[in-house]
Design a protein around this nucleic acid. Sequence first.
DNA 1: TAGTGGTCTAGACCACCTG
DNA 2: AGGTGGTCTAGACCACTAG
Lengths: 234, 234
Amino acid sequence: MNYPAINSWQDIQSEILERIQSRQWKPGELIPNEADLAREFGCARSTVNRALQAVADQGWIDRRRKAGTRVALHPIRRATLDIPILRREIELKGQAYSYELVRKVEGRTPPPRVLEQMDGDASSSFLHVLARHFCDKKPYAVEDRWINLNAVPEIADVALESQSANEWLVHNARFTKAEIEFRAVNASKEQARLLGTDTGSALFVIDRGTWFEGAAITRVDLLFAPGYSIKTSF
Amino acid sequence: MNYPAINSWQDIQSEILERIQSRQWKPGELIPNEADLAREFGCARSTVNRALQAVADQGWIDRRRKAGTRVALHPIRRATLDIPILRREIELKGQAYSYELVRKVEGRTPPPRVLEQMDGDASSSFLHVLARHFCDKKPYAVEDRWINLNAVPEIADVALESQSANEWLVHNARFTKAEIEFRAVNASKEQARLLGTDTGSALFVIDRGTWFEGAAITRVDLLFAPGYSIKTSF
DNA sequence: TAGTGGTCTAGACCACCTG
DNA sequence: AGGTGGTCTAGACCACTAG
């Protein structure tokens, strides 16, 4: 029988994970330093380093200079999600995407929660956009967006009838910081109507905010029709 | 005025992102190869490689041998979430965590959705656990869990009155594959009662499944009381 | 202050894939 | 066939921080 050699950083990563998951290295325990592992595996220290960095990124170990590397006390804690761009998500499933602007209102003040999230003050000027995304002509998600016109004045002149504000912003606005929040809400009467469901239905919400150099650009709630879920595996 | 030098891989990463976000390099466009960039930045190719790999991990560029590196057409936003371990999440906020087993039933068959998710067949034997997690004595989440006894027979004998099945499994069961799904559901009558809320309230759900070498170990729904959200920023 | 991880370099070989 | 990214090496210096 031929066993695979251990020399690539992926092999070393597997071996490290194996030792952690088999509890040969227990939670909280200090593991050998990079130089020792390199000797053990017969490879360069940088190869071990690459492997350990990958393991650390997944949350299995904690590394600190001088203190060394320890097995994390609480494993399984990190998941990477791909945040969908609706048009693409739907077209990738081979279904037809469409979009409809419900209304676009300039000069209104956002509700307190949004205002606070956007670090807004009384002098700020906002654009509110409400729109629908469809999958094969069935309502898929409602987009409820506030845009800071002080940060992106150009968008006031863009016709959002055919292109979603999201797409315009993706292609035209840069950001330096973003925040994403996931929640569940009961559908309001209007939301239910727009999604073709019942008032009170549980909606999955992706709430995203973006900033450019400290100034809030936009805050958007995407409210998905019942049945939607977002998944990841590792 | 003193400008920072460009030589660390993080600096190069910033410069790359800057060029993409400023549309100096446009979506779909081929960017210079590693060797050229290394010459431009006056550093080793491996340093450029490190930077480009990081940028690729974030979804901004697509890289293929021979074909080169292109700016992604659809900047996929990738978010890294820390999945909470309830006891830890609550204690980190400085609040009191407690746990209550509601019931533990052996030998029942899971509902169709769960059975399918667990690749279960008629011969499998399951343990069903329903429990509550509290934060400062207020209901925080309901844990609705199915465990494959063929895979983890030991747990049948563990008293789950004081320790949650989650904690037992974290410390005693290895897994090779995991899946996490986020949804929203309307609270059932029992769920509402357990969470001290109204029937039909929108609950945020984290649904997690783990496998060991192809065999499903456990599937758990964590249903959070209204107001819960999970966040990330980058 | 000394041990650890973090990073950079210069060079090399190779896997992959497009043209 | 040849160009590109993926990876490994051996060595070096540095940043951080525990003791």
